[in-house]
């Protein structure tokens, strides 16, 4: 039996009166790499943000390692510090160096002493090829370096699950490459990941599973290659065709 890491059950969420997620259920196994695709406004980013309760769902359950996240408001901080999150942009804190960005969460959430936290931060940065930039401030770095720094910060807390919300979408095409490279490296390490992205090549090469979301529901999910190459639903096929056409432009 596979080891279930995360269960999302009948999740509903939205903003004001608009329902964005209309009942989404999903299971992620430990070590699994899931790519979520879908048109903009389909609810994929909302789904990702609901997992650490950055958005409070209207209904449904989120279960991480057997703990019902949605029922544990007192343990929320502890649960959140087990999940790494990388946003499209503005993830790093601009007023502190890259090293401090990575070390601060270790000090705050894990209670590690500053010296030790900074040593660990530096080793994570070095592993991602950012060691030489540790003393730089985020806005002194390129967009690609910033996103890799954000990934380093998310990894430093040693999360059981890494969530990435369109980590390359705000970047110029020539800067995406280095971020995708980093994603490949992390994928190889065997960490559980859920990533919302339009990087179809990455999904094909590195994902175990692809989930296609449209209009707040999961239209299709399954083995990455099967969904991407032989989608069963018309909606999936149409979306992928449009996405690939856009990429070639």
């Amino acid at each position: 039996m596979s080891d279930v890491l995360l269960t999302v059950r009948d999740l509903r969420a939205g903003y004001n009166d608009t329902e964005v997620l209309k009942g989404v259920s999903l299971t992620a196994n430990r070590g699994e790499k899931i790519v979520i695709v879908g048109p903009s406004g389909s609810g994929k980013s909302t789904l990702l943000k609901c997992i650490p309760l950055l958005i409070k769902p209207w209904a449904g359950e989120i279960i991480l390692e057997g703990t019902i996240v949605t029922h544990e408001p007192d343990n929320l901080r502890k649960i959140r510090s087990k999940i790494g999150f990388v946003f499209q942009q503005y993830t790093l804190f601009p007023h502190m160096t890259l090293l401090r960005n990575v070390a601060l969460p270790l000090e705050i959430s894990k209670g590690i002493q500053r010296r030790e936290a900074e040593q660990k931060a530096l080793s994570v940065l070095t592993r991602l090829g950012l060691g030489g930039l540790a003393s730089k401030y985020p806005l002194e770095l390129s967009g690609g370096q910033q996103q890799r720094g954000a990934i380093a910060r998310a990894l430093a807390i040693d999360p059981v699950l890494l969530l990435l919300d369109e980590p390359t979408s705000a970047l110029d095409p020539e800067l995406r490459y280095e971020v995708v490279e980093t994603l490949y490296e992390i994928a190889k390490e065997g960490r559980s990941m859920m990533i919302v992205t339009h990087e179809i090549d990455f999904a094909e090469a590195a994902a175990d599973r692809v989930v296609f979301i449209d209009d707040g529901i999961i239209v299709e999910e399954g083995d990455a290659r099967q969904v991407l190459e032989h989608p069963k639903k018309d909606r999936t096929e149409r979306f992928l065709r449009r996405l690939r056409a856009g990429m070639r432009k």
Partner: peptide, 9 residues
């Protein structure tokens, strides 16, 4: 959201 996601109060 980043601060929250990192477990800050």
């Amino acid at each position: 959201l980043s601060a929250e996601s990192l477990g800050m109060t």
